[in-house]
Nucleic acid binder design. Structure first.
Lengths: 192, 192
DNA sequence: TACGATTGTCGAAAAATTAGACACTGAGGT
DNA sequence: ACCTCAGTGTCTAATTTTTCGACAATCGTA
């Protein structure tokens, strides 16, 4: 499992890395959130531990929210746990609304942080499954529609081809499964 | 649109009712959360505005979390916006994790509260759509599986019946749509 | 009521499916 | 190398299904 830490404070990065080293196989830590797009490219990060303030003139967390949204907009986004010293209720709520898996305040409790990260990854995985299922659902439904307005012959041909495929091209087996004569498959295949 | 307010403070209930009267068609307000199950039974509530503390000996919000979970466990649950005077970040985060659509701190801003409630209802609607789609997806997938192992005859019969259904029993039309002779449908129907 | 569309039903022609057979290929096991 | 076996490609003839055209009966509707 791979973790990406984004915090502009070098000391915090070092500490976090040390604390989480046992839990993750790989940990990358950077100080500049602008590196995020590049680092997330291959989609090989399981979780991002993201600070919320990168500009000392603005401690309202808007930076964190911006990068959070940025991360979560992409499909197959990793889990994101936010961590901040200046968190208030509205900020935490807004972060959760934008898809953060969890929200931690500094100073943090080590064991608690580990637990939150692991649960965040788990939750994120489940969400990904749902997203994928949802994608499929649209396709399935459309297929269903197309099929329902098919001609009997079209349907037959499609089904026959599918079954032959599943039988690895074994016509005899496919014929048995379809409950028809081997000859019939032959004819159907030759027709087109 | 129907709103249910749950707050043990009568003054708060009255004020909320007054503030939100313009926005909702119907508003019910109760002081005891134990009434929730009964009131939500028919599933005719669009949103619940839920206080988090009903026992003055325990102001940690655990009551609110309990009832939040209770509401959200049922299918077709309404939107829930929490409102509390004793909210801290961990509580807000936990509430959002449990499916609350929003989290408001007392004292509240009237316009803000209205906006949050409306957005909460909207979000909840979208979530319901997703839940339904997800349910269907499982069914569709199973159908797909069953169909893929069907005999040609079974498939034919199923499809024929479906199309005849969609044509309201009009055999002639169904035959045209299926690209076969009317007679053929006749035979297929008589067979079983 | 009269019309148009649909139904139930027929017989005969056309097409598809089937069973059975046979030589051939290719993979696996001896 | 040899044998076996499952699968292929192909054929014929029998059987079944589908199709076409037709016709009286029925039903909803203008």
């Amino acid at each position: 499992m791979k973790l990406l830490i984004v915090d502009d404070n070098r000391a915090v990065r070092t500490t976090l890395k040390l604390v989480l080293a046992d839990t993750f196989d790989e940990i990358a830590a950077v100080g500049d959130p602008h590196l995020l797009p590049a680092l997330l490219m291959p989609g090989n990060v399981d979780a991002v531990l993201l600070d919320m303030n990168f500009d000392n003139r603005r401690l309202d967390g808007s930076d964190g929210l911006f990068w959070l949204s940025h991360i979560k907009e992409s499909p197959n986004a990793p889990a994101v746990v936010l961590i901040t010293a200046f968190g208030d209720v509205p900020l935490a709520v807004e972060a959760m609304k934008r898809g953060a898996e969890d929200f931690v305040t500094k100073p943090w409790d080590n064991d608690d942080l580990v637990a939150k990260l692991l649960r965040a990854i788990d939750k994120n995985r489940k969400e990904k499954v749902i997203a994928r299922t949802l994608d499929n659902a649209a396709e399935l439904e459309q297929r269903e529609n197309e099929r329902s307005r098919m001609t009997l012959d079209e349907l037959k041909i499609e089904h026959v081809n599918a079954v032959i495929d599943r039988c690895g091209g074994n016509l005899t087996a496919a014929a048995a499964q379809l409950g028809v004569n081997r000859q019939t498959l032959y004819n159907i295949q030759k027709k087109k």
